[in-house]
Design a protein around this nucleic acid. Structure first.
Lengths: 157, 157
DNA sequence: GCTTGCCTTCGAGCGCGCTCGAATCTTTAG
DNA sequence: CTAAAGATTCGAGCGCGCTCGAAGGCAAGC
């Protein structure tokens, strides 16, 4: 929570992102919100929900990251649980976790509570990576804003 | 400056990164520091300075992003100016600017001041991208810390 | 019944950004 | 003088994470 409010201060009152359609990954803080959506969702809707392509969702499934149920016709049906996992996966991917690490992590999840120590380690590493990226991005932001200032900052040329 | 102090608060007093050898990209805020270094540098030293490989520096040159002078033997000699550009390039790359956009930008720089409007636009876009990434990373960080908390947070398994 | 459109599987292909190997030249140490 | 370390150019190769195309099944509207 502390982190959120701080970074919120950084990014608030700025070029409002205008998050239009279903961008769960960039908006949701409370996963329980997902229950409100009319799950289960087909692959297209689920993809739109997390901001990925249907292709990518099938790819994730093939890689063992999600296992949505199928309806009578063999179509994928993403439950609220599946959607929450997709949000998790997408956030981890967006923050630079590799497919390999993500696969390993999910594999551990599927193997019960005695894998928690290793999962914990993975999340510690992930946190360190994210913080490093935050540092790098902060420097890049400063550099960028320096340039904008130097150019006089005319947004429309 | 405002941004820096805020994010500094977020990341301060944490797992100290132990920035050992020459990590200009992650540390320098004032480019003038570069003059202190004994420029010009050979490709290996320059690479170490920005945290890239010599291969990558040659690749950047081939792509037209830097043009270091050559000594009598044809070896690359990166001047302080070149090093500052390398720091800039590296920060932009680390913050997700594509090679294509970077090439375009440098091309504009090489074409004088009347290209400033377009350069300005590129930097505005870049800033928006960085801020989006910061938002995504922040959510990912929260998710990660949530997991760590859930796992009881034992760092050593 | 037919068309439209979204769903399925499969394997191949691709764009990005390096990364490497080979052959050769230069500099430095002993 | 010799050997080792590090520089050069060139083009090929690679790992990641998708991304796409082909061939076909299923559902709904006219």
């Amino acid at each position: 929570m502390s982190t959120e409010t701080l970074v919120e201060r950084i990014l608030a009152a700025d070029d409002a992102p205008a998050l239009s359609a279903a961008d769960a990954v960039h908006g949701l803080l409370d996963d329980s919100v997902i229950d409100d959506v009319a799950a289960p969702l087909g692959v297209a809707k689920a993809a739109e929900f997390v901001g990925l392509s249907p292709h990518t969702l099938r790819y994730y499934e093939q890689q063992g990251l999600v296992r949505p149920a199928r309806n009578a016709s063999g179509y994928r049906a993403y439950s609220a649980l599946d959607l929450r996992r997709l949000v998790f996966l997408t956030r981890m991917r967006l923050s630079g976790m590799t497919m390999q690490d993500l696969k390993r992590y999910i594999e551990l999840v599927d193997h019960g509570d005695n894998t928690i120590p290793e999962r914990s380690r993975i999340m510690f590493d992930q946190r360190a990576r994210i913080k490093k990226q935050l540092r790098e991005l902060t420097l890049a932001l400063e550099t960028t804003e320096y340039k904008i200032r130097a150019y006089g900052g005319h947004p429309d040329g």
